[in-house]
Design a protein around this nucleic acid. Structure first.
Lengths: 179, 179
DNA sequence: GCAAATTTGCAAGCATACTGATTATCAGTC
DNA sequence: GACTGATAATCAGTATGCTTGCAAATTTGC
C-alpha cells in the first residue's frame, strides 16, 4: 500500500530514496552507511538465530537446546567432571553452566555429587537417561548442523569452519571473567 | 540417515587436531565423537559471544548493545518506519523489536507515534539524541567489528563474510513464524 | 593456624528471543 | 452498515545468557 517493501527481511535499504543518513554518510566515514548485511556482527547474530532454530526444529522431540546438548556432549566425552571444567569446555559462563546443569539434573539427564577428592567441587555425571538421550538425539543434531551449512559448497563449508575456529581460538577467555 | 555403529564405551579418538574430524563427521556417523570445536553450532555460538563481548567493550561508554545498534542503524538508513518494517530489516522477532524499541524510547533515542495513514501502526523516528549517538558510536562499532575479524587474513575475512551472507540469505524467514 | 584462592550456590537485574492471546484497525465483501 | 479476514501492536509468560555481588565450604600456600 504505502510502499512496496514486501521483500526479504534483510532488505538492502540503499534504494529507498529518501534516506537522511545517506547525506551524512556521504562525507563522513563509510561505516554508518554499510548495510546490515555487510556487518559481521549482524551476520553472526542471524547465523546464531538460524542454527538455533534449525536445531530446535530437528530436536523438538527431545526438547533439548543447543547449549544443553553441548554440555551433555562435553560430559560424555570428558567423563565425570567438575562444573567449572564443563564451563570452560563449552565456553559458557559459570553461573549459566550451573543453570543449565540444574535443568539437566531436574530432568534426570545428569547427576551431581560432591567430589571426594575436593569437597568444594561437585562432579557431574551422565545418567543412563542422559546417555540414551545423547544416542537418540545424535542423528537429529547432526542433521541440524548439516542443514545450517547446506547453502554452502564443500569448499565454503571448510573455509567457514576454519575461519570460525580461528576466531574462537584467538579469543579463548572472552566473556569469562567470572571463573 | 545412516545407522549408528557401536556406542563406544571409551572414546578417545584423535582429540583436537586440525580438521579431519569434520570430514569424518560429515560422511560417517560418529557425530557423537566430534569435538565441540568441529560443530558449526558450537562455533557460531562462541562467535556470537565473542563479538557481543567485543562490541560491549568498545561501546561501553554509550551502553548500546549490538541489537540496539542494528535497530538504530536500520532506522537511520530507512527513515521513519513502522515497527514491523524494522523487525524485518534486522531479522528480529516483532515482540523483541518492540522490547528493544521501548528501551530506546525510554532513553530518548527514538520517538514513536501513531501513523496517521494507518492507525494500527506506529512510526518510529530517530531523535536528535539518537542521531548524535549513532555518529558518536560509529568509530567504536567499527572497531568492534574489525577486532572480531582481526584473527583472519584478508581472504579469510572475505570468505567468512560471504559464507555467512549466503546462509543468512538462504534462511530468510527462519525463526519468524509469527509475522 | 591463618589468609588467600577456589568452587559452588543464590539472588537480583538486564537484554535477547520466542509463543500465544488480545486489542485495534483496515480492507475487503455482502 | 455489518461481517470477515488480515494486519500492527501489545501484554503476559517462558527461557536463555550474562553480570554483579555475596555467602559458605574447602583447599592450599605461607
Amino acid at each position: 500500500m504505502t510502499e512496496d517493501m514486501n521483500a526479504a527481511p534483510e532488505l538492502p535499504p540503499e534504494d529507498t530514496g529518501e534516506s537522511p543518513a545517506l547525506l551524512r554518510a556521504a562525507c563522513d566515514n563509510d561505516w554508518a552507511e554499510t548495510g546490515l548485511r555487510d556487518r559481521p556482527g549482524f551476520l553472526i547474530r542471524r547465523l546464531h538465530q538460524i542454527h538455533t532454530a534449525l536445531f530446535m526444529q530437528e530436536c523438538a522431540s527431545e526438547g533439548l537446546t543447543p547449549v544443553q546438548y553441548s554440555v551433555l556432549t562435553a560430559l560424555g566425552q570428558m567423563g565425570p567432571s567438575e562444573q567449572i571444567a564443563i564451563s570452560r569446555a563449552v565456553g559458557l559462563d559459570r553461573t549459566s553452566t550451573a543453570d543449565v546443569m540444574q535443568r539437566l539434573e531436574k530432568r534426570k539427564m545428569i547427576r551431581r555429587r560432591t567430589s571426594p577428592k575436593d569437597r568444594r567441587s561437585k562432579i557431574a555425571t551422565l545418567t543412563e537417561v542422559g546417555e540414551s538421550l545423547l544416542e537418540r538425539i545424535d542423528a537429529a543434531a547432526s542433521a541440524a548442523h548439516t542443514r545450517t551449512l547446506e547453502p554452502l559448497g564443500p569448499d565454503e563449508r571448510r573455509e567457514l569452519m576454519q575461519a570460525m575456529r580461528k576466531i574462537v581460538d584467538a579469543y579463548p577467555d572472552l566473556e569469562r571473567k567470572s571463573y
